[in-house]
């Protein structure tokens, strides 16, 4: 077992776990933050995407000890004081989610991307979410929502 302290959604959390624990399982099973999902075994689907120290990463491809001392934002930390992030509002307005399973991952990938690329074009948006798979939406509404946030029209 190894002792890990990680700041999750602004709160410092101390956990003791096996070093082979994946960050996604630490979040889901130790911290009960089940909004971050596991959709594959090979780092392809992005359903587990969180923002770690400002960058979107696949939490299924981070060992818990690698997250020690870092700051992690999950989908549960996206809204502040109960106010939805503009991305969350845009996802709702643009029907950018259906079954919702991939949604947290898309939100977090989109959040980190738009924070550093506030005025992207459509091609850049599509590339930014090319590490996330969705089976329901055909991506059109997700792209629409991200562009709406970028353009401040949501």
């Amino acid at each position: 077992m190894t002792d890990i302290t990680v700041t999750v959604n602004g709160v410092s959390r101390a956990v003791s776990c096996s070093p082979s624990t994946l960050l996604v399982h630490l979040l889901r099973e130790e911290l009960q933050l089940t909004g971050t999902h596991v959709g594959c075994d090979t780092s392809h689907c992005g359903a587990c995407t969180v923002v770690m120290d400002g960058r979107a990463v696949k939490s299924c491809t981070v060992l818990a000890p690698q997250a020690h001392g870092r700051s992690v934002t999950t989908v549960e930390g996206l809204a502040e004081d109960g106010r939805l992030d503009p991305l969350q509002e845009a996802f709702a307005d643009h029907f950018a989610l259906q079954c919702g399973f991939c949604t947290s991952g898309f939100l977090m990938a989109a959040k980190a991307f738009l924070d550093t690329n506030p005025s992207p074009d459509e091609e850049q948006v599509r590339k930014a979410i090319s590490g996330n798979l969705c089976r329901c939406t055909g991506y059109q509404h997700i792209v629409d929502a991200m562009l709406a946030v970028a353009e401040g029209t949501t």
Binding site: G46, T49, R55, A56, T61, A109, F113, A128, G131
Partner: peptide, 9 residues
């Protein structure tokens, strides 16, 4: 390389 999220780490 891979995808933008993998490249971040």
């Amino acid at each position: 390389i891979a995808d933008p999220l993998v490249r971040n780490l």
